[in-house]
Design a protein around this nucleic acid. Structure first.
Lengths: 242, 242
DNA sequence: AAAAATCTTTGCGCTAGCGCAAACTTCAAA
DNA sequence: TTTGAAGTTTGCGCTAGCGCAAAGATTTTT
């Protein structure tokens, strides 16, 4: 990407919303671009946080590994999203592992440069607050789901989230935009790959989706939404007024 | 509390860390104090967010109610903690319900006043970022726990969190500082009151704690920590080198 | 002091979901 | 095209934890 285009892109991001135009030359000067191959690891949870990133192209998985060896996926980042804010600002090690799930292009700022901009530029600090609060709201939903919902519903939610975030409308339905395994879906839903496989198989026989290896085509998004929102359960209760 | 003492207290809070001393008169002038009786509800999830609070005295439960009627507790606030930041700044309705679990005293700012201070005072914005990032880190832990750990361990974690946050050391052990029911613990741990009751009973027979009605006395914190950290499981495996 | 309301405990049966094992499919490399 | 590695499916048995019901205990109200 050339400089002109990059600046235009930066201006469109949440992180730099409402920042004066004349600042972008300097913001860009402080940055450098980095690319990552598919499957490459940007940093591992516990690494010292030296870099703040904005994802320009591709998709990155943020996850945590428990001491017991279980992996938990916290978020899939898409183009335009910033990451590494917390670790860089708080001077702590990265609390998560970041791995490219597609070939990726990022803009990167050193810890010091990133801190400089966030601290000395109130609008950028406010934008950071907005981004962080999005995470909080999303994580609250996640906690509520894990605490109260059955696996089937959680899996439906996970897949719908992926679809909303990176689905591509095709003639046959909505196709998820990147390779994803049953194991990945399990790590997003708080279950096992076996259970994911069984439930996807069931949905496939019901004609709701097609699950090829590492890819999913949603044929009836509405049916999935019904499961995610637990519609149709009302009918099962079959309460008839007296 | 008189003005002098209140200002001294404000200065000690995360929210106003590193704010110049001469600002506190004006910050305080913009605020008003509110008190809430035990069990009183400050606001319900979905209410328009008109007030930003700092808790001075007492304890407040932040929770969400699912459409199905299940309650999930997200956090217990203690003295010195700020809440309502997100809703006020984002101009959204409160995403959670806040209820006093003890008699409480709060400082309150109207939405507009709170926004004014956060927006026009970079240091306060940075402090907000710090507070929000604490929530994110805590919620990540919560998600990881719910996704990978068994109930017994999650309950141990919940109780230890309460103890750390509001426990009082006594001759007989650590007593939780406020009334809490089995149902409350269940809502923190993502399980049911029956399971909590059974597990507390078990721990009581093992001599680890004493569970009276609405109160818990931890007699062996170390044993609880072992369960929370899943120590002692290694022994069960009983792997002997060949 | 009695009555009502709220919490807690525990027996019992049940099922959602786990996780091993083994076969099968798909993809990538040689 | 073959071979191997990686991912998926499914049978099977098992158990952790759910949730009703009913009895007790504790707290609050009158």
């Amino acid at each position: 990407m050339d400089k002109e285009k990059l600046i235009k892109y930066l201006k469109s991001l949440d992180m730099f919303d409402h920042v004066e135009s004349n600042q972008f030359d300097r913001i860009l000067e402080d940055s450098h671009t980095v690319t990552f191959q598919q499957d490459e690891i940007l940093f591992i949870q516990g690494d010292p946080a030296n870099v703040f990133y904005v994802l320009i192209e591709g998709r990155i998985k943020l996850s945590q590994l428990t001491p017991e060896g279980d992996q938990v996926t916290l978020h899939y980042l898409g183009p335009g999203e910033a990451f590494g804010i917390i670790a860089v600002l708080r001077e702590i090690n990265y609390p998560v592992t970041a791995q490219a799930v597609e070939n990726c292009e990022c803009l990167a700022w050193s810890k010091d440069k990133a801190k400089k901009w966030i601290i000395s530029y109130p609008q950028i600090a406010l934008n950071s607050i907005r981004i962080l609060s999005n995470f909080i709201l999303a994580f609250q939903d996640r906690i509520r789901e894990l605490s109260t919902q059955r696996v089937e519903r959680r899996i439906a939610h996970s897949i719908l989230r992926l679809a909303k975030h990176s689905g591509k409308q095709t003639k046959r339905g909505i196709a998820l935009g990147f390779k994803i395994t049953r194991q990945d879906i399990a790590e997003m839903s708080g279950t096992t790959l076996y259970t994911v496989s069984r439930i996807l198989s069931k949905w496939e026989t019901l004609g709701m989706l097609e699950g090829h290896s590492k890819s999913i085509l949603i044929k009836e998004p509405h049916a999935l939404t019904n499961i995610a929102e637990d519609l149709g359960e009302e009918n099962k209760l079959d309460i008839t007024p007296p």
